[in-house]
């Protein structure tokens, strides 16, 4: 599949996964791969500290869009972060609380509102993303979704709010967000994992939960940290080498073989359990996360996308 066509098939890509699977790296890689096809990309980070922007060498990242990558022939990446608290203050400001929204935040009333309406913050973050989808001139919007075990909770929020707040502005907001989530041309989730047992299990669970409970279409899964194929690991180290060197060679080869076997097993299991295409990103042994590294990963992503079948 042509990468340009790939990135044109869904405007918003929500990149989600558990902690430690390299979700921010995957988001940054996708953003770069899209920018290199000449697209303008908005990379959105949700809550917490920015993890993807520093990979482009950008110091900080604020609520306002900032350019972090710009190519001569048109591709570019903007980034901005959305914090749940700010999204809530902003939304209240737009709904009759302009003068007191900040004071509400300070006094703790905001916490009461958020507690009284579970999911409101997540909904408003998604609402902000939906607003960006409509306002932003970007060709592709890549969302680095909240880490930890919250991807499903985050994406389920609009359903929860729609069911508790049956009428009024919140209900309308939830309905609008769901409309975006349910339209594969507008939005898809891309799940990130590692070729290991627990991350694969979690990806499978998350994928079914997102499809069944949220009815959000899934794009290809992103598998990080793939060991490059290496044949001939059964060879015997040359006898003329020192004993310690031969031992090290044997140990490194055995470990590589074991890990490769484990990886093959897990990738097969993932493929069997989930009928999703996979974008595979290589493990980088000499990794210093930076633009050079991202370029290499983006090359791999593009190569992987090239070999994908077209998806509906």
């Amino acid at each position: 599949m042509d990468p340009g066509q790939f990135f044109a098939s869904s405007r918003v890509l929500i990149v989600a996964g558990k902690g430690g699977v390299g979700k921010s790296t995957a988001s940054a890689t996708l953003a770069l791969a899209a920018a290199r096809t000449g697209l303008s990309v908005l990379l959105v980070e949700v809550a917490g500290r920015s993890a993807a922007a520093p990979m482009f060498g950008a110091d900080t990242q604020g609520y306002e869009a900032t350019v972090i990558y710009d190519e001569a022939d048109g591709g570019s990446i903007y980034t901005r972060s959305i914090t749940p608290d700010l999204a809530l203050v902003e939304w209240l400001g737009n709904h009759g609380f302009k003068t007191i929204a900040k004071r509400m935040a300070k006094s703790g009333l905001l916490e009461i509102v958020a507690t009284a309406t579970p999911g409101i913050k997540d909904l408003l973050v998604l609402g902000r993303i939906k607003a960006l989808e409509q306002e932003s001139p970007a060709d592709v919007i890549i969302v680095d979704a909240p880490a930890a075990g919250h991807a499903v909770q985050f994406l389920r929020a609009p359903i929860g709010v729609r069911d508790t707040a049956r009428t009024g502005v919140l209900n309308r907001q939830a309905a609008e967000v769901l409309e975006m989530l349910h339209d594969p041309a507008r939005c898809r989730a891309m799940l990130v994992t590692l070729p290991e047992e627990t991350p694969v299990n979690e990806l499978i669970e998350t994928a079914f939960a997102i499809e069944d409970e949220v009815e959000l279409a899934l794009g290809p899964a992103i598998v990080n940290g793939i060991l490059p194929a290496l044949d001939g690991l059964d060879a015997v180290p040359p006898a003329e080498l020192a004993q310690a060197e031969r031992d090290d060679l044997r140990m490194a080869a055995a470990l590589r073989r074991d890990r490769a076997a484990l990886q093959t097993e897990q990738l097969e299991r993932l493929g069997t359990a989930l009928p999703l295409a996979q974008i595979r990103l290589p493990q980088r042994f000499r990794a210093q996360l930076g633009l050079v590294e991202l370029q290499a990963l983006a090359d791999a992503a593009v190569e992987s996308i090239d070999s994908l079948e077209a998806w509906a």
Partner: peptide, 27 residues
């Protein structure tokens, strides 16, 4: 260095596995 020395022989893969391991471990 071992990776270079072994590159053209039967044990080339061992050299690569060792150098990859060493680089990753150092990082």
């Amino acid at each position: 260095a071992l990776r270079g020395e072994l590159a053209d022989g039967d044990a080339a893969a061992l050299g690569i596995a060792l150098a990859d391991h060493a680089a990753a471990a150092a990082g």
